[in-house]
C-alpha cells in the first residue's frame, strides 16, 4: 500500500496550490517553537530542524546539485539560524527566513568555490551526463520507489536544464515553482525587489521551457 508522506515542514502549502487558498489564516505552528528556541531551548530548535530540514536540504541540493555538499551546507544554515535567532522578529514566516539564510550560505559557498578554483568554476561540471554514474561522490538521483520512472527521467532533465540557468534564475524557479513561495517571500529570501523576482522568473521560465521544449510541448 502506498502511503502519502506528509510534508513535515508545512502541510498546507504546495507549489501547485493557489496562493490565496493558503494565505488566509494559515496557523504558524512554528511560532511557539521559535519562541522557546529563542530562549535557548535546544530541544525546541531540534524540532524546528526536523520540520524544515527537508525543504532546506531540497532547496540547497537543487541549487548546487551535490548531495554531500548540500548536506554540510544545510547544517550550516541551521547553525547560522540558531546564531541569528535572537534577531528573528517573526515579520516573515520562519521558513522564509530560513530560505534567506540558505540563500546567503549557498552564495557564500559558491563565491568561495569560484575563488578556490581560480576562475575555473563551471556550472556545467555538475551536468549529470558528465558524471560517472559509478563514482562514489556522484550526486544520488535515486527516486523513491513509488515514483514513476517517467518522473525520475523528467526530474533529471529538469535538473540538467536548471543548471544551465544562472544562479539567480535557478533560485527563483526553485523557490517559486518547487518550493511554492510567493513573490514577496522570494524577494525577502533573495534580498531583492518583487519586480526583480518577476523579471528573473519570467526569463528563467522562458529559458527552461526552451530547454525542455520536447517535454513541455507533449504535456
Amino acid at each position: 500500500m502506498n502511503k502519502v508522506r506528509p510534508d513535515p515542514s508545512n502541510p498546507l502549502t504546495g507549489p501547485s496550490e493557489p496562493v490565496e487558498s493558503r494565505a488566509k489564516g494559515e496557523p504558524d505552528d512554528d511560532a511557539l517553537l521559535v519562541t522557546r528556541a529563542q530562549k535557548g531551548d535546544l530541544r525546541a530548535y531540534d524540532e524546528l530542524v526536523i520540520r524544515h530540514r527537508g525543504r532546506i536540504f531540497a532547496m540547497v541540493r537543487n541549487m548546487i546539485h551535490h548531495e554531500a555538499d548540500a548536506w554540510d551546507l544545510s547544517q550550516d544554515v541551521f547553525v547560522k539560524a540558531w546564531q541569528a535567532l535572537p534577531r528573528f522578529e517573526a515579520k516573515a514566516r520562519f521558513s522564509t527566513w530560513l530560505f534567506r539564510i540558505a540563500h546567503n550560505v549557498v552564495y557564500d559557498w559558491t563565491r568561495k568555490r569560484k575563488i578556490d578554483s581560480a576562475g575555473e568554476f563551471n556550472d556545467e561540471i555538475f551536468d549529470r551526463d558528465q558524471i560517472d554514474p559509478l563514482a562514489s561522490t556522484a550526486p544520488s538521483g535515486a527516486d523513491a520507489p513509488d515514483l514513476s520512472m517517467e518522473h525520475g527521467e523528467l526530474r533529471m532533465k529538469i535538473q540538467a536544464a536548471l543548471f544551465k540557468l544562472s544562479a539567480e534564475h535557478r533560485e527563483s524557479v526553485i523557490l517559486k515553482d518547487v518550493q511554492g513561495l510567493s513573490y514577496k517571500e522570494i524577494a525577502d529570501a533573495m534580498g531583492c525587489t518583487i519586480g526583480t523576482v518577476m523579471s528573473r522568473l519570467f526569463y528563467a521560465r522562458q529559458k527552461l521551457q526552451a530547454l525542455l521544449k520536447d517535454e513541455y510541448e507533449t504535456r
Binding site: S9, P15, R53, W71, L154, Q159, V173, I174, R219
Partner: peptide, 13 residues
C-alpha cells in the same frame, strides 16, 4: 509539471 518532478521536500541522508 515542475512540482511533480522535482520534490519540494527531501530528507537529508
Amino acid at each position: 509539471m515542475i512540482s511533480s518532478a522535482v520534490p519540494k521536500v527531501e530528507e537529508p541522508p
